[in-house]
């Protein structure tokens, strides 16, 4: 059944008399528990689309429904676990205290229930941060901070996770390692994820669906289903099909350059 439904959505930014058409006629549908990657050239509106779904930006045309709710309605019920590009950890809180933030604000929102809460320490251990539970954010490296951000989103109990290039500031090696950790933690939680990335490899490795977008104005040029078996592990990168998907996506991205 369709869980997230994006219908004919358009978005314009107006600033100092100048109008930018950020998104045009976006139509997308995702089922619950799907891992979706958004990929496309810089400025094609990936972040905008993510923020629209999360109720952080309004739309000019069209309609977005999340389990029958508007984005703002879903936000009020705390349905979103947001992982921005920079990890957005409060420096005055320890790692564990940062994990508590989703439960301390908007306590009327029903999306996250404290009683059903997963043990945050266990979650941190699962991303290899068991020894840093009581450290302050500035005592962690960028990659470690980003892992806290991911653990916080999964541990918040929110059914939908919105990740906007969470790995873009990391080096190649860390990035690869964290992508496997994300794969594992997703496998054990099966949440609906919208994941913005610039990496073809990450998109194919993690996703059930890859949405390829084109720029100016942002449009969906192709939605590709990734039919690779799950659970997936590192050896999937030896799979021929894996590389086939990567070149297929690359093909769609290149098409638009011409």
């Amino acid at each position: 059944m369709t869980y997230i439904k994006i219908q004919q959505v358009s978005k314009f930014y107006k600033r100092r008399g100048q109008v930018t058409e950020a998104l045009r006629d976006i139509n997308l549908e995702f089922e619950q528990g799907t891992f979706v990657s958004l990929i496309g050239p810089s400025g094609c509106g990936k972040s905008t689309l993510l923020r629209i779904v999360g109720g952080l930006t309004d739309i000019d045309q069209g309609e977005v429904a999340i389990g029958g709710l508007s984005p703002l309605g879903a936000q009020k019920q705390k349905q979103f676990g947001f992982v921005p590009q920079s990890p957005a950890l409060f420096p005055w809180r320890t790692v564990l205290q940062n994990m508590n933030v989703p439960f301390e604000v908007n306590t009327k929102g029903t999306g996250m229930k404290l009683e059903q809460r997963e043990d945050p320490v266990e979650l941190l251990q699962s991303v290899g941060l068991g020894d840093f539970v009581h450290s302050y954010a500035k005592e962690l490296s960028g990659g470690m901070q980003q892992r806290v951000g991911i653990a916080r989103a999964f541990g918040s109990g929110a059914p939908i996770l919105l990740m906007d290039e969470p790995f873009s500031a990391l080096d190649e090696i860390t990035r690869e390692m964290i992508s496997y950790q994300l794969l594992d933690i997703w496998q054990s939680h099966q949440k609906t994820v919208l994941f913005v990335t610039h990496s073809l490899r990450e998109a194919v490795l993690l996703s059930d669906k890859v949405v390829v977008m084109s720029a100016r104005p942002g449009q969906v040029s192709k939605v590709i289903d990734i039919d690779l078996p799950r659970p997936r592990h590192a050896d999937i990168e030896d799979n021929e099909q894996f590389h086939h998907y990567i070149s297929e996506i690359r093909g769609y991205l290149r098409e638009k350059w011409k």
Binding site: G55, Q75, K78, P84, A88, W92, V105, N106, G109
Partner: peptide, 29 residues
């Protein structure tokens, strides 16, 4: 305050008051 922190709080639909006590105030110390 950090834009990212504010946006994170907004994604949780934190109230103005919560944003003040949990973000602006500690940030100002």
């Amino acid at each position: 305050i950090d834009e990212n922190h504010l946006e994170y709080m907004n994604s949780l639909h934190a109230s103005k008051r919560e944003i003040f006590t949990k973000l602006r105030l500690p940030n100002s110390l």
